[in-house]
Every structure is written in C-alpha cells, then in structure tokens.
C-alpha cells in the first residue's frame, strides 16, 4: 500500500460518499474513509489520519465551516489540506478563482472523478 493516499470525505449524503469511495479506491491509488456526521469528523480524522479531506458545507447539526475550524484547532490535523466539496457554488464560480473561493479551496458538485483526482494531486504534490 505504499504511496496510497488516504482521503477522508465528510458529507451527510451517504450515497455520494459511497460512490466517491468506490471510484477513487478503484484506481488503486487511494484509500477512502467516509464520515456522514460533521460532529464526528474530528474524531474520525484523528483515527484515520488522512492525507487530505473533502468536506461538505451544508450539513445538519454542524456545518462545514465549523468542522474546518475544529480541524484547524487540532494540532495533529491542522496541516491536512481540506477542500470544500459542495453544491452551494457552481463549477463556473469555483473555476473562476482557480478553485479558490473566499480564500478557501472549493470543488462544486456534481464533480467527476477526474476532477477529484486532479484536485487531490494539486494539494498533495
């Protein structure tokens, strides 16, 4: 498993996380952990220690912004790249700033596996 990157996807859409996991893991280059509850995100991340996190924005109980704040508060997790993967912006808006919106990396849903991989490669160079 050397060279396999660990990706955590935090998204309340169970099926979306499942499909992303299937598509990324099929390439043989990624190991994906799915977390559907924002409030469990930090604990799951601490246990899994991913190389990168895809984080949904609009989630029940706690939103992506608060989850990010908690991740950044944690010394062990604060340096892990986090990309917001959300339906609240359009691909056009995300692309306009070369993936950066309001100073944060964003990917717009729906997203192709190719774009997810490009994004991972960009942040895990």
């Amino acid at each position: 498993m050397a060279g396999v990157k660990k990706i955590l996807i935090v998204d309340d859409e169970v099926d979306f996380g499942k499909m992303v996991k299937l598509n990324l893991e099929r390439t043989g280059e990624y190991q994906v952990m799915q977390e559907t509850k924002g409030r469990n995100a930090v604990e799951t991340a601490k246990a899994f220690m991913p190389d990168m996190i895809f984080l949904d924005v609009v989630m029940p109980e706690i939103d992506g912004g608060d989850v990010l704040a908690k991740l950044k508060d944690n010394a062990a997790l604060k340096d892990i790249p986090v990309v917001f993967l959300t339906a609240i912006i359009t691909d056009k808006e995300a692309s306009a700033g070369d993936g950066i919106v309001a100073g944060r990396p964003f990917l717009a849903k729906p997203v192709t596996t190719a774009k997810l991989i490009d994004c991972i490669k960009k942040y895990l160079k």
């Binding site: 979306f16 339906a87 849903k109 729906p110 997203v111």
Partner: peptide, 21 residues
C-alpha cells in the same frame, strides 16, 4: 432548489462513472 438538486446529481454522476468501469 439548486442545492437540493445538485446533491443527487452529484451522486448520479459518480454512480454513472462507477458503472462505466
């Protein structure tokens, strides 16, 4: 509506790509 519809679209797109394989 945009937010609510783009989430299932995202699932369908990923599922379609999975089935393509």
């Amino acid at each position: 509506v945009a937010h609510e519809v783009r989430n299932p679209l995202a699932i369908i797109l990923q599922a379609k790509e999975y089935l393509e394989g």
